[in-house]
Computed example of a mutant assay.
Amino acid sequence: MKDRILSVDIFRGMTIVLMILVNTPGTWRAVYGPLKHAQWHGYTPTDLVFPFFLFIVGTSIVFAYKNKKATAATYKKITVRALKLIGLGLFLGAFTLNFPFIKDFADIRFPGVLQRIGVVFFFASILFLNLNWKSLIGVAIVLLVGYWLLMGYVPVNGVESTFERAPNNLANYIDVQVFGTHNYKEDYDPEGLLSTLPSIVSSLLGIFTGLILTSKQEKKAIILFGLGGAFLIIGYLWDFVFPINKALWTSSFVMVTAGWANLILALIYYLTDVKKIQFGTIFRYAGANAIVLYFLSSFISKLLGMIKMGETSLHGWLFETIYVHDFMSLQMSSLLYGLTVVAFYCLLAYVLYQKKIFIKV
């Protein structure tokens, strides 16, 4: 597209590269410190990665559908893409090497990253097509405040609700009732059903940013910096009564992560689109095939973990043979393995881009 904004592509590519790095350490027993998730409340840089991607999904929706009408053809296109994303996620959760290559039904996890991306993309796109920006703000407020009230004030089996990992955590309770054993863990799922509601707002806030970037406003970078700062303030104030928490995707978490996303995107926009400074080209390549790279990295990583090499997996054998040394900490070895994986997919992204291969999911 001739009006494509370079900073958006770079931001998307940076996010997908970080997603791959976070998801493919050499060993989960020794993850490099900054690449760890928060234990429960609070957040680390790693906890910003997934909400950043949902945020940029919203921004991209503006570019894809700003000139589209709410027709049956448009709805069909949105629905098909959402179902593809959900289907790919379910495939990752169900695949196994043993014939018929599908896990036992009881062992399949239904929620997941790609599933959440598909659901969020679907609802955010439909809302964008049918509502103006003022109405979208109203929807965002209702979802965030409503989620807070549900999580904080609806009792679970007659017991006062909690934001901790416990049976009377409403989000976990609903996931257990709906999905049964098909969850990430017995006491929580980071891509659970109820927490999908505020995750839609992560994408809606990205839509507002997309509207700013495509508007005729001057000093867009300053506006985005201000918006990011405002979101951070709201998020940190909300944290006092609804703790910042990725696993629950709390309303405060939505605001804080959208705040950081706006600040970082504003900086990239100022440098690349305003000052015309050339950098981050490799991230632009990765952003052009973001979902494909994420799916391949997840699938191949899963394969390497399933293929046996003696008493360990092919993944374990590669890690122990190539990366583990006495002169290096296990955490550093784990990081180097992840960086190698990232380098491979960046190279793949470069080749696909040069050959003009853009695989749309």
Rank of each mutant, 00 (worst) to 15 (best):
K216W: 00
N172W: 04
T257M: 12
F295V: 07
E311K: 14
I291G: 05
T257Q: 11
K246C: 02
T214E: 02
Y184E: 14
G206D: 01
F231L: 15
L227W: 08
L296I: 09
A258C: 15
A247Y: 08
G305P: 03
E218W: 01
S203Y: 03
V201P: 09
S301D: 11
T196G: 13
F231N: 13
L267P: 01
K308R: 06
S251P: 03
S203A: 15
H182P: 01
L271H: 02
I200C: 15
L211C: 03
F208N: 01
I264G: 08
P243F: 10
T257D: 04
D239Y: 09
Y236V: 06
L193W: 11
A230V: 12
I268Q: 13
I174S: 10
F283S: 09
L314A: 03
L197W: 06
F208P: 00
T181L: 10
A171K: 07
T214F: 01
A247C: 03
Q217K: 14
P198D: 15
P190L: 07
L204P: 01
T281K: 15
S203T: 08
S252Q: 08
E218R: 14
G226M: 13
D189C: 07
A221V: 01
I244W: 14
Q217T: 02
L303R: 11
D239F: 06
G305H: 09
V254S: 14
G287R: 15
S301V: 02
F231H: 13
A171F: 03
S301E: 06
P190D: 04
M255S: 13
L213Q: 12
Y173S: 09
V254W: 09
V292P: 07
F295L: 03
G305R: 11
F240R: 12
T272S: 08
M309H: 03
F240D: 12
I174C: 05
L293Y: 06
